Simulated scan of single mutants.
Amino acid sequence: MERSVLVTGAGRGIGRAVALRLAGAGFRIAINYRRNEEAAASCLAEIEAAGGQAYVLPFDISDRELVRATLEKDIEENGVYWGVVLNAGVHADNPLPSMKGEEWDRVIHTNLDGFYNIMNPLVMPMIRAKKGGRVVSMSSVAGITGNRGQVNYSAAKAGIIGATKALAQELAKRKITANSVAPGFIHTDMVADLPVDEIKRHIPMRRFGTAEEVAGLVNFLFSDDAAYITGQVISINGGLV
Score class of each variant (00 low, 15 high):
residue 3 R to I: 02
residue 7 V to I: 14
residue 8 T to Q: 04
residue 9 G to N: 13
residue 11 G to R: 04
residue 13 G to Q: 02
residue 17 A to I: 06
residue 18 V to D: 04
residue 22 L to K: 00
residue 23 A to D: 00
residue 26 G to R: 09
residue 29 I to K: 03
residue 30 A to P: 09
residue 33 Y to W: 03
residue 40 A to N: 06
residue 42 S to Q: 06
residue 43 C to H: 08
residue 46 E to P: 02
residue 53 Q to L: 11
residue 57 L to T: 03
residue 57 L to C: 02
residue 58 P to V: 12
residue 63 D to P: 03
residue 64 R to L: 05
residue 66 L to Q: 09
residue 67 V to C: 15
residue 67 V to N: 02
residue 69 A to P: 03
residue 70 T to H: 06
residue 80 V to C: 02
residue 83 G to P: 00
residue 83 G to M: 01
residue 85 V to K: 00
residue 87 N to F: 10
residue 92 A to S: 14
residue 94 N to H: 05
residue 97 P to G: 14
residue 100 K to D: 13
residue 101 G to P: 10
residue 107 V to D: 11
residue 114 G to K: 03
residue 115 F to W: 11
residue 117 N to G: 08
residue 120 N to V: 10
residue 128 R to I: 04
residue 129 A to F: 15
residue 130 K to P: 00
residue 134 R to I: 02
residue 136 V to I: 15
residue 137 S to H: 01
residue 140 S to V: 11
residue 142 A to E: 03
residue 146 G to M: 02
residue 147 N to D: 06
residue 148 R to Y: 09
residue 150 Q to E: 14
residue 160 I to E: 03
residue 160 I to R: 08
residue 163 A to E: 06
residue 164 T to H: 13
residue 166 A to E: 15
residue 167 L to W: 01
residue 168 A to C: 12
residue 170 E to S: 15
residue 170 E to F: 13
residue 171 L to Y: 00
residue 173 K to S: 15
residue 174 R to E: 07
residue 175 K to C: 02
residue 176 I to Y: 00
residue 178 A to H: 05
residue 179 N to D: 07
residue 186 I to D: 10
residue 188 T to W: 09
residue 189 D to C: 07
residue 190 M to Q: 12
residue 190 M to K: 06
residue 191 V to C: 09
residue 192 A to G: 14
residue 193 D to A: 10
residue 194 L to I: 14
residue 194 L to T: 13
residue 197 D to T: 09
residue 198 E to R: 12
residue 200 K to R: 15
residue 204 P to C: 10
residue 205 M to V: 08
residue 208 F to G: 05
residue 208 F to I: 04
residue 213 E to D: 04
residue 214 V to R: 08
residue 222 F to G: 03
residue 225 D to C: 11
residue 225 D to S: 15
residue 227 A to C: 12
residue 228 Y to S: 14
residue 228 Y to W: 15
residue 231 G to S: 10
residue 231 G to D: 10
residue 238 G to T: 15
